[in-house]
């Protein structure tokens, strides 16, 4: 294993609706022997709501510069944060005029283009590696999983680190820990959960999330696994609202991949926030042997 320390960018939902993702990410990295140093005084990446790319680049120049001072690459568990950090990193490395302009706005935006930005999935599979993870496994997570990747892992091409139509990094981890990938879910792996429209067109967002939940259920999944807090909010947090609004019953547990991986590494379920998922996860815990 080549890395032992990374800058950690938690993202805005990390102390609220996605605290379970934050807890499990920290616990898993600790168990894997990688120290996470939180990007000090980090600011929001711009999410999907700041549409002007120049503002996104400037917001993230500050985050990147803070990590660069520590001489650490950044890792984040959120797909949207990853997309914004990585595209900013690319733009800033390529555009000297932009960097000069930002430096003129404030010295804290002075980023030298020396670090990398990564998503946790990429770090687990490609940096830490399957052999290293495998050597630390303590338990078998014997569950049938629908691996849901969402948008920014395989798209857009310049920031993607997995296949756009059939990503596999999460599948690999699930198989490694003794889980089974359900058949017939592949075509839903990267279809958007509807999250960005939740506040303005909830009807469309609910319809989109429902499709994913339905396909996972029909495929016989014990749970859906995720790598993004907005997907978590839609599929887990809002699942009861979707059931109520559409007059249906789903009852599909939804967990972060870091929670599943943590179980396999022998970490206490409560330390992984598994008592905080909106849909009960007890049945999954019963399948950890």
């Amino acid at each position: 294993m080549s890395i032992n320390k990374l800058a950690y960018y938690p993202g805005c939902p990390s102390d609220g609706t996605a605290v379970d993702q934050d807890m499990s990410t920290k616990a898993v990295f600790e168990k894997l022997g990688v120290e996470l140093v939180e990007v000090e005084d980090w600011n929001c990446c711009g999410a999907a709501e700041v549409e002007d790319p120049r503002v996104v680049y400037a917001l993230n120049a500050r985050n990147l510069a803070i990590a660069e001072k520590e001489d650490l690459d950044i890792v984040t568990p959120c797909s949207i944060c990853y997309y914004n950090l990585e595209r900013s990193n690319k733009a800033l490395k390529a555009d000297e005029a932009l960097c000069t302009k930002l430096k003129g706005i404030d010295s804290s935006l002075d980023y030298g283009g020396k670090i990398k930005t990564k998503h946790v999935l990429d770090v687990f599979v490609n940096d830490i590696g399957m052999d290293e993870i495998s050597s630390k496994l303590e338990k078998k997570v014997n569950v049938k999983v629908a691996p849901y990747y969402g948008c920014y892992i395989g798209r857009p091409p310049e920031t993607a680190f997995d296949d756009p139509d059939n990503p596999v990094l999460m599948d690999k981890l699930i198989e490694l820990i003794g889980g089974e990938i359900v058949p017939n879910f592949n075509y839903m792996k990267t279809v958007c959960c509807g999250g960005p429209l939740m506040m303005t067109r909830g009807d469309i967002a609910f319809d989109m999330a429902r499709k994913i939940l339905d396909v996972a259920k029909n495929a016989g999944a014990d749970c859906i696994s995720l790598a993004c807090p907005l997907c978590g909010m839609m599929l887990d947090g809002k699942q009861a609202d979707i059931e109520k609004a559409l007059g249906i019953t789903i009852g599909m547990p939804v967990v972060y991949i870091t929670q599943l991986l943590g179980l396999a590494l022998g970490i206490e379920p409560n330390k992984l926030g598994l008592n905080k998922n909106a849909v009960d996860t007890k049945e999954i815990l019963g399948k950890v042997v």
């Binding site: 980090w42 600011n43 002007d52 120049r54 917001l59 500050r62 706005i105 404030d106």
Partner: peptide
């Protein structure tokens, strides 16, 4: 939440927005 560097964020929106 109160990011200590929030004055910079305000400047970013003013200058780049």
């Amino acid at each position: 939440p109160k990011v200590k560097g929030r004055a910079v964020i305000k400047k970013i929106f003013k200058e780049m927005g």
